[in-house]
């Protein structure tokens, strides 16, 4: 089912000052995909994410949302595009001085004209979706890391985004919580009909949820593989990808 392209990355080169992080990235994220950006530590995965969500401008190349080139668009258009995305940061990035309800309510207050009562109802519902109903008045410091992450997800989906970005969703979670979060991501993709972009190096996650993937290589500073993770494992295009997907040559036990 080749759905339409949601995000297209064309000839993207990313650099910090004079140091090129990744060059010549070319890939398409289709509507409804769970697209995995994978690669070893320091290969530029998170940098790519920061480019996709508009925090850093590319050195060269284009990022298209639908058929709008993000970085060539005027500021209001970019804001409009970003409003349809949600981001779950690595540590949740909840605002520590606000309760969970206030955290989730902020985007709703800023970007909709809903009344206080309706906002409260939506906030409770979003928290219920991530299994945190009844935690409205808790502060981020009073809940566990996994709960913080789920609350961050509730905030990310506050405005019913079309695209959800996840930065290392399973980092710092125990295997069971990590799997639950994976299932939640799948469920949200299916029911919200959203496109999901996941930056991760968790093999279990990659095989469990990834429908398409790109592999960023730190040494050659470009993408060296592009395709569904299971297919990449079956027909690895190069040894680095095989190494990565099999944890450095261990007999792979890849749950498909």
């Amino acid at each position: 089912m080749p759905a339409e392209a949601h995000i297209t990355v064309e000839n993207l080169t990313m650099a910090y000052g004079g140091m090129v992080v990744q060059r010549d990235l070319d890939f398409v994220i289709r509507r409804g995909d769970i697209f995995v950006v994978m690669g070893g530590s320091g290969c530029g995965k998170s940098t790519l994410l920061r480019h996709l969500i508009g925090l850093r401008a590319p050195r060269s190349g284009r990022i298209l949302y639908g058929d709008v080139s993000f970085w060539d668009a005027p500021e209001p258009t970019r804001d409009q595009l970003l409003r349809r995305t949600g981001v779950l940061y690595q540590g949740g990035a909840l605002w520590t001085s606000m309760s969970l309800a206030e955290n989730v309510a902020l985007p709703l207050r800023e970007h909709t004209r809903l009344g206080e009562r309706e906002i409260r109802e939506i906030v409770s519902f979003k928290l219920a979706l991530v299994g945190l109903r009844g935690f409205e008045d808790f502060y981020p410091s009073e809940i566990s890391g996994g709960m913080r992450k789920r609350a961050g997800l509730a905030r990310a989906i506050a405005l019913d985004p079309e695209i959800l970005f996840f930065d290392e969703p399973s980092a710092g979670l125990d295997p069971i919580s990590a799997r639950r979060l994976d299932e939640l991501i799948l469920e949200l993709r299916d029911s919200l009909g959203a496109t999901v972009v996941v930056v991760t190096h968790e093999l279990a996650s990659i095989f469990a949820i990834g429908s398409n993937a790109v592999f960023l290589d730190a040494a050659s500073k470009t993408m060296t593989a592009y395709g569904p993770p299971a297919e990449l494992l079956a027909h690895p295009p190069n040894p680095q990808v095989l190494d990565f997907l099999t944890r450095g040559g261990q007999t792979a036990s890849a749950p498909a």
């Binding site: 519902f125 219920a128 979706l129 299994g131 945190l132 109903r133 009844g134 935690f135 008045d137 939640l184 469920e187 299916d190 029911s191 919200l192 009909g193």
Partner: peptide, 19 residues
């Protein structure tokens, strides 16, 4: 709609935390 039904089921999956 299937999406709505699933989201409602998801929201009801975890009981409310008793404060």
């Amino acid at each position: 709609p299937p999406g709505a039904a699933r989201l409602l089921a998801l929201a009801a999956a975890v009981p409310e935390h008793e404060q």
